[in-house]
Design a protein around this nucleic acid. Structure first.
Length: 418
RNA sequence: GGAGGCGUCGCCUAGUCCGGUCUAUGGCGCCGCACUGCUAAUGCGGUUUGGGUCUCAAGCCCAUCGGGAGUUCAAAUCUCCCCGCCUCCGCCA
């Protein structure tokens, strides 16, 4: 939810942001009109309520002979109040609908354009060359006894997999490495619920344009989260926070319907319905948000470097930003089997957009004001395993284990096919 | 899953049975002022949040007693639904 007060003063900023995102700038004017209409309805209802209040007092203190007449006017006022309150409720709802339709304001400097218009900020490590025919992660994982998608499909359907043996151990090793690094950096580790109420889902902006991506448990009115960003953001909802910043590293399973991704990444475990992830989530003073964003990006880069993976950092263009994000960086690792860059991590600065919806505030000189929230992937496990196997494969089918992971894999330097 | 209890403006708490100056009591904490070598103590005042109006601020108005709906001229108080917490029973890793 964007800042209405700011929008009243500077509607052009809102329109410009909408244009950059490829959204309709007229929605800004619709929002301002709904705001205006609501204020009128509120004033009318307030005035009637005040009148009714004094009428009510008059009834109590009326003499017996005056009472019937006074009661009658009070009753008439009550009817009017009821109508005015109904009108106010409708105006409130209309404003909310218009408000929810607007994604976050894009920050200055975000590249214009869509999915193809990202800007490459840097590349870390060289694209690896192999003097043998490379295998993809599924072939490697099958040979290692690490990944079983056939039985995943048998048991749960397409886009599900079992991680077995080294696959399971690799996941645990990655989780340990990631959580350890996060704790070292001052994050509070959190095991978060993967099922959340509708308010949590809506508050984080996932029920808008991407609602079809989300699993819902209809009979319990709960949603399965696609990222622990959702429970972590909702964790402090409705609270007033002192002692900012708060930094959390959440671990949870993530569930995604992958509706509309038919035929994309169908092989292996690059795009599955369920995976585990360590996610960073920060609540900071709005003025510190941009600096915090750079920190999150730095942690992501450090983690990929520790895994000895070549990657590049891109800044995502305006029209490709999620509803809540005002700026987003992705780290993309090299995927040898497909000779392309694959998104492994993503970090977004959501400014005060989520905090306004979720009612997360802190005390400032102007009184209570929404905080800024930021999120960043530290390690999306499945995809990381896929890239790890491919990048570190050798001609004999063995896979090199990066130094950083060895302490969590009983000191193993390589994984061997069964 | 069953039975019962509870939820009041930071924390604790009065008020709810029996609707009406509740414009919500008192304490703690906190803020300001006074007194005072300093601190403490004491005294006085202030201290929910959201919205509207005004736009420099102050002030004024409306709403707010877990959330929502209802009854009524009038709801913290009565009715219904939902949420949360606690106790007991059942079941369970």
């Amino acid at each position: 939810m964007i800042d209405l007060r700011l929008l009243r003063e500077d509607p052009d900023r809102g329109r410009a942001s909408q244009r950059a995102r490829g959204e309709d700038p007229a929605l800004i004017d619709a929002l301002l009109a709904a705001d205006e209409a609501r204020r009128g309805a509120v004033t009318r209802a307030d005035n009637l309520r005040a009148a009714q209040k004094s009428a009510s007092v008059a009834v109590r203190s009326a003499s017996p002979q005056d009472r019937p007449a006074i009661l009658e006017t009070a009753q008439a006022l009550a009817t009017q109040v009821k109508a005015a309150e109904l009108a106010q409720a409708e105006a409130d709802a209309a404003l909310r609908t218009a408000h929810l339709a607007i994604p976050n304001l894009v920050l200055d400097g975000v590249p214009p354009g869509g999915e193809q218009d990202y800007v490459v900020l840097e590349q870390v490590g060289a694209v690896p060359a192999y003097d043998f025919p490379v295998l993809d992660h599924l072939d490697l994982g099958t040979a290692l006894g690490a990944i079983d998608t056939e039985r995943g499909a048998k048991v749960s359907g397409s886009r599900f997999a079992f991680l077995t043996g080294w696959g399971a151990l690799l996941e645990l090793a990655l989780v340990n490495l990631a959580v350890g690094a996060a704790v070292e950096a001052g994050f509070t580790p959190v095991i978060a619920p993967a099922l959340v109420r509708p308010e949590a889902m809506e508050g984080t902006g996932f029920l808008g344009a991407h609602a079809a991506e989300v699993y819902k448990l209809e009979s319990d009115d709960l949603y399965l989260v696609g990222t622990s960003e959702v429970p972590l953001a909702a964790y402090h909802s409705g609270e007033v926070l002192d002692d900012l910043p708060y930094r959390y590293a959440g671990f949870s399973s993530c569930f995604r319907r992958e509706a509309g991704s038919h035929g994309k990444d169908t092989r292996g475990i690059i795009r599955v319905h369920q995976f585990d992830k360590v996610e960073m989530f920060c609540l900071v003073a709005p003025a510190d948000a941009q600096a915090e964003h750079q920190r999150l990006l730095a942690y992501e880069k450090a983690f990929l470097s520790a895994l000895e993976l070549p990657f590049r950092v891109i800044e995502v263009a305006a029209a490709d930003l999620g509803t809540s994000a005002a700026r987003k960086y992705d780290c993309e690792a090299w995927l040898p089997s497909q000779q392309r860059w694959l998104e492994l991590t993503s970090t977004s600065n959501c400014t005060d957009f989520q905090a306004r919806r979720l009612g997360i505030r802190s005390r400032s000189e102007q009184g209570l004001a929404p905080v800024a929230t930021l999120n960043g992937t530290l390690c999306a496990i499945g995809r990381t395993i896929a890239v790890l196997l491919e990048v570190h494969q050798r001609a004999d089918g063995s896979v090199h284990v990066p130094d950083a992971l060895r302490p969590y894999l009983a000191g193993r330097k390589e994984l061997l096919p069964q």
